[in-house]
Amino acid sequence: MSAVSEGIERARRGVGAGGSGRTTPRRRRRPTGGGLTLLLFALPSLILLLLINLYPLVYAAMQSVRSGNLINLGPFVGLANYRNVLTDPDFWHSALFTLIFTVTGVFGSWAVGLALAMLLRGKVPAGGVFKVLLLLPWVVPVVVSATSWNWLVATPQSPLPEFFSLLGFDNVLFLSDPTLAKIVVCVFKVWISFPFMMMMMSSALTAVDVNVYEAAKVDGATGWQSFRSITMPLISRSTYISWILMTIFCVNDFPTIYLLTGGGPTNATTSLVVLAYRTVFQDFQTGPGVAIAFLMTAVLVIVSVVLYRQIAKVNIE
């Protein structure tokens, strides 16, 4: 291990150049009976919440194995709805776009949010006003944001197509071309999501002691080495949590896509949640629609478990 790496490791542990790196073991708290008392007080509310959430879940599970509509459950068909969904090309097309939309939304908003959080950690002129302005894409209702973006790109007379026309690109219709529509939807998701990531990363960076960076700088670490070996490990737990939350937000994001493109053109931006909505409320096929929703839930559970295991592996000293 090089001297710089050893210095960074000592800096992470808060140990000086001649320190030993030993920490005082924490004393374990003795269990008390307060937890049981709190559980008894919370039990009525827990039972009520369980009943409120359990009934729709059970009813939806019944719908997914029956061939009915919004009024009647219909006859029992077993796993036929799941089989039909998994063999439907439209499902896999929507699943692919959902994957692209989610990966772009999660990592794009995280990268922008982390960069802005690190920038705002320093001394920025009018930093308070700047922070408020950066929160606007997340604070403003998505209906307003989607309407603004439609005005910006939807028609040939919109500002962005007009700008591309001045550059020599004619008939650039962002929401009529399938590829451009996908790009616009993904960029729009990053736009409305980066403030959330910025707040998460700002909170994580606040817990990092500035003296750690000073100690690493004294040991000869570069800015990139400090970011890779100090910043990223120390904020890894908050990073994984933010990825889990944003993955759930992206997969279940209906208004962003539906208000901007409606799932078009030619179903290019139809995600799984939009496909489930159409199947249930437009085609009135509740069985396949609910089956799509349960498949989405299963994937989200798997992703969440994997990321939670990564959180458990994080060892911040």
Rank of each mutant, 00 (worst) to 15 (best):
A216M: 01
R228V: 14
Y213Q: 08
W243M: 15
G220C: 08
L259I: 05
L234Q: 09
S242E: 09
M246F: 03
S242I: 05
A215S: 13
W243E: 10
K217V: 05
V218R: 04
D219N: 14
S226T: 06
F254V: 05
V251E: 07
S229C: 08
T231K: 03
E214N: 09
Y213S: 02
I248G: 08
I244T: 08
V210W: 03
L234T: 04
F227A: 05
Y258G: 02
E214C: 04
F227W: 09
V210P: 06
V210T: 11
V251M: 12
A221D: 04
S242M: 10
L234D: 03
M246Y: 07
I235C: 02
P255W: 07
R237W: 03
D219K: 08
W243P: 05
D209S: 11
S236P: 05
S242F: 08
T247I: 12
T222G: 15
R228Q: 13
L245W: 12
I241Y: 14
C250A: 14
F249T: 13
S238M: 04
G220M: 03
L245S: 06
D209K: 07
R237P: 01
N252F: 08
T239D: 03
K217T: 13
T247V: 12
R237I: 14
L245V: 15
I257N: 05
W243C: 14
A215F: 01
T239A: 15
S226G: 08
Y213P: 01
L234E: 07
W224Q: 08
P255V: 06
I248D: 03
S229D: 07
W224N: 05
T247D: 09
R228L: 14
F254D: 07
A216G: 06
S238N: 04
S226E: 12
A216C: 06
N211M: 10
I257V: 15
Q225E: 13
N211S: 14
T222Y: 02
S236M: 15
L245Y: 14
F227Q: 00
W243F: 15
L245N: 07
L245I: 15
I235F: 02
I244P: 06
A207T: 08
K217N: 10
P255R: 03
Y240R: 03
A216T: 05
S229V: 00
G223K: 15
V210M: 07
F249L: 14
I257T: 10
T231N: 04
K217H: 10
M232T: 06
T222D: 08
D253Q: 09
F254C: 06
Y213L: 07
I241H: 09
F227G: 00
F249S: 10
N252M: 11
F254P: 01
D253T: 05
V218G: 02
Y258W: 08
V208S: 00
D253H: 06
S238L: 01
W224I: 08
V218N: 05
G223M: 12
G220S: 03
S236K: 12
A207S: 11
A216P: 03
G220L: 04
N211C: 11
L245G: 06
T256C: 10
T247N: 12
K217L: 14
V210D: 10
I241W: 09
N211A: 15
M246W: 08
C250K: 13
V212A: 02
Q225C: 05
A215Y: 01
D209T: 01
T222F: 06
V218P: 05
V212G: 02
T231H: 02
